[in-house]
Design a protein around this nucleic acid. Sequence first.
DNA 1: AAATATTATACAACTAGACAAATTACTACT
DNA 2: AGTAGTAATTTGTCTAGTTGTATAATATTT
Lengths: 243, 243
Amino acid sequence: MPIWQSIRAALTTDIQEGRYAPGDKLPTEAALARRFGVHRHTVRRAISDLANDGTVYSRRGSGVYVQQTITEYPLGRRVSFTRNLEAAGRLPSREILLIETRSADPKEADALNLEPGELVHCYDGLSCADEQPLAIFRSVFPASFLPDLPNALGRFNSITEGLREQGITDYTRAWTSVSAQSATATQALHLRMTVGAPLLQTISLNLDPRGRPVEYGCTWFSGDKVTLTFGCDDDVARSQKPD
Amino acid sequence: MPIWQSIRAALTTDIQEGRYAPGDKLPTEAALARRFGVHRHTVRRAISDLANDGTVYSRRGSGVYVQQTITEYPLGRRVSFTRNLEAAGRLPSREILLIETRSADPKEADALNLEPGELVHCYDGLSCADEQPLAIFRSVFPASFLPDLPNALGRFNSITEGLREQGITDYTRAWTSVSAQSATATQALHLRMTVGAPLLQTISLNLDPRGRPVEYGCTWFSGDKVTLTFGCDDDVARSQKPD
DNA sequence: AAATATTATACAACTAGACAAATTACTACT
DNA sequence: AGTAGTAATTTGTCTAGTTGTATAATATTT
């Protein structure tokens, strides 16, 4: 048996027995090479095998980290990210990547029924389960009748709460489109996957009760960690507020 | 493909599709690093590339801004900064740097046909398009038959208006020379470019209808933002009032 | 002998953190 | 209202450490 396989086995049991917990950083390749008394490349061979089957995730310049095993995430027509994950026994959280106010690009202007170049609030973020990134989202709001939304989004870290403070107490999804894409470099970094791995992209438009567009949203789910299901959970979904 | 190149590509499309318009400030490097999930240095690598090809420029302590597109600047017998820019759909403006009366240096005396040491009015300023500096200029006038010009220049912030008040209702360009130079530190600061970046320097002499020299002008255009055109626009130039 | 595994070396790409320098925002004061 | 001083923010620069990749040489196994 090659040395690297025994190293892989040793690291695997280290992880399984909790010496390295999910999210932990492994010792550096150089340190592991010292520990096992081999060259760095031999350790790399073992790590690349572990990364291949998803037990670890390595990041250039930073280190190698233990991955979590991910459960599936159901998505209905009126979906609460928080409630779905809590129902699955996981701890949901969000990370703000960027909140800014800028000009609308043509697609955004079209969807939100704005003039090209009108200002929009843009909210980029990361949806996580147990600190593990599940999806990247971008929500775009018309700035004209939601002047203080960026402030509210930063405070609440919740779209629903932020909109409620601005007077939008309810909104419904006008349409949703789903497509598959390949992860770009930065998407892969955020979602801790490899470049080119499959993503599920959903694009949707939310309207307030008067029919005004209030949110144009785009979400990229990690294809390995999420399956989207429509229509089969309406009972649960109806009892939920949109998120 | 390195990550920084994909970040550069993302920012480029952001700019091309209008999410960041010319003159806009990009998010801070720290914010962009969060947005792309990388270290600040990686964002800087992308930005430095964009700055290198003139897409953006950065100011220490302030931020990174989208560069204006190149302006076509026709040079004819009657050159009007204001009209040239209005014709290009830009908003022209000027900033006064210095107005003083002093002795002419040899070159100025020679061009204006004065005795060495005779008094001249010197007018240094900044020409801007859409609030962005395009050029630095220095205009030198014989003080002898234009005693109140400095006052007028300060009030009107326009050479044409100032001269008109002093009785010079028209003037034409006797000659123009063009050369290329590297930006000094102070020039770079005013024009918001890097030290050593290319400048277009034009030196010109304007005569009144009786053939008297009235203005000896020197202008340094930002090479990135301006292209000068000659000869092919005489019709347009003749129909313009000098400025 | 050939294929595979391991070592060796060098460099590129990225992260991490600290500090300097310039700008901007703010506060206190006259 | 304006001015000086202070603090916070933001870009510029530097050093060090870590993973990714490429090439080549040496040992081990088949």
